[in-house]
Design a binder for these strands. Structure first.
Lengths: 175, 175
DNA sequence: AATGGCCTGTGACCAAAATCACAAACGGCA
DNA sequence: TGCCGTTTGTGATTTTGGTCACAGGCCATT
């Protein structure tokens, strides 16, 4: 990707600062953007009868979006919010795709982002199909230790698909 | 998409007939194509210590591929095979992307396919994070009844992440 | 109609995790 | 330092789903 392409991409981004707990994409809203985390982290979760189920955590240097909502132009059933005080770059998809002369690089950029976000989702989903809760915890410990350092146990629990108490017991056995 | 674009796409496709159980993409092979199902269905699974775990079923008019393998150019750990006698169109990605003047439409086509395949994977993965086995069955019943009609219970079980016996009992309760 | 192979149903039992209830630890802040 | 709210640990009990073993059904082939 050339410098001109890069700087034209940056021109579609606007910075935004969020306090811990502040919501970036709300349930019921149509998602129209990619978010690039600059500092802090974003938490993506689903509201199941009042209980929060965490689907992903996005740290510095990584992207997140709700592609399903973007693509279908339908309201999001996920919430994306700041897990700490967080600053993000918001890439507006409408202005990127609707501009008069979209460079092929922009299409390729979007394609790569989409694949990147979705492959991450797929990787996490395989955890559930292949491994038991204890095995899932061990894998996170090995491959994504950052999660264990920065995410409260109570939030990690739903991410791993277990009760808070079960995760506490798994962790205890580890020493 | 114009007619020329469409017919140029078709020119990258070759037809192939498969007997039930015949393998289209094998474990260890690098995936280089999209497959479009014309008749029958394809079953995508991976081998966990000798046990088959089904990840997706692809019916008439839908596409499947192993994008992770395509993108990384690394051997597939999934197997794609015919669940019935099946005929497919094979879209060769190398020849599509490496041709001298790739039209932007081809990039967009690939982008849409990729997103479509991955959104389906994501949807299925969310089933596991959010719902219990019984809820998963009910959702399949509601949103993808075709699966229940055409897929043997023993194969559906691993797709839903439960033991064969458990699925049999869930199904019984439903009446 | 009989055979054999495969697929599905079902009971008994077991193990793992959920749930409930409460105690302990921690962290900011007056 | 002491207080309060949040987060984590832990025991007792219940639920759920897995595992094992086997019976019955279905279907194709002879």
């Amino acid at each position: 990707m050339t410098n001109e392409d890069l700087s034209s991409l940056v021109s579609y981004a606007t910075g935004r600062e969020l306090k811990k707990g502040e919501v970036l994409l709300n349930e019921g809203e149509v998602c129209r953007a990619f978010y690039l985390v600059d500092k802090g982290y974003l938490r993506t979760w689903y509201n199941k009868n009042g209980a929060e189920i965490n689907l992903s955590f996005t740290f510095e240097g990584d992207f997140i979006s709700n592609l399903k909502s973007v693509k279908s132009k339908r309201p999001s059933n996920l919430i994306i919010e700041a897990g700490e005080d967080t600053s993000v770059w918001v890439f507006d998809l409408d202005s990127m795709t609707k501009q008069p002369n979209p460079s092929p690089e922009i299409n390729i950029f979007i394609r790569r982002l989409a694949i990147r976000i979705l492959l991450a989702a797929e990787e996490h989903s395989n955890l559930f199909k292949i491994y038991t809760p204890t095995e899932r915890y061990r894998l996170i410990e090995k491959n994504h230790p950052l999660l264990l350092q920065r995410i409260p146990l109570s939030q990690l629990a739903s991410y791993l698909g277990v009760a808070r108490e079960t995760l506490s017991r798994i962790r205890k056995k580890n020493h």
